[in-house]
Amino acid sequence: MILPLDFILILFVFICAVAAITIKDLLSAVVILGAYSFLMCLLWTEMAAIDVAFTEASVSASIGTVLMIGCVAKTKRRSKD
């Protein structure tokens, strides 16, 4: 636990989460969600949970992003609301 780094990373994760929810373009939301998972993985590592961080990096940052991009490619890209 390193407190200053902790607060900075939590702030980044918060910014990414809010941006991913509020954005209209789905592809941009997927890209920002990729950044969210990268920063989340950094947060896990910083809390010395390396195995969790490895799982987060491998599952959410690569395969998750790829599968979500595939879903956006096969459906509509703009959300209607």
Binding site: G34, F38, C41, F54, A57, S58, A61, S62, T65, V66
Partner: peptide
């Protein structure tokens, strides 16, 4: 692992 997966995305 980070570097490889960033490239793929």
């Amino acid at each position: 692992a980070y570097a490889l997966l960033n490239f793929i995305g």
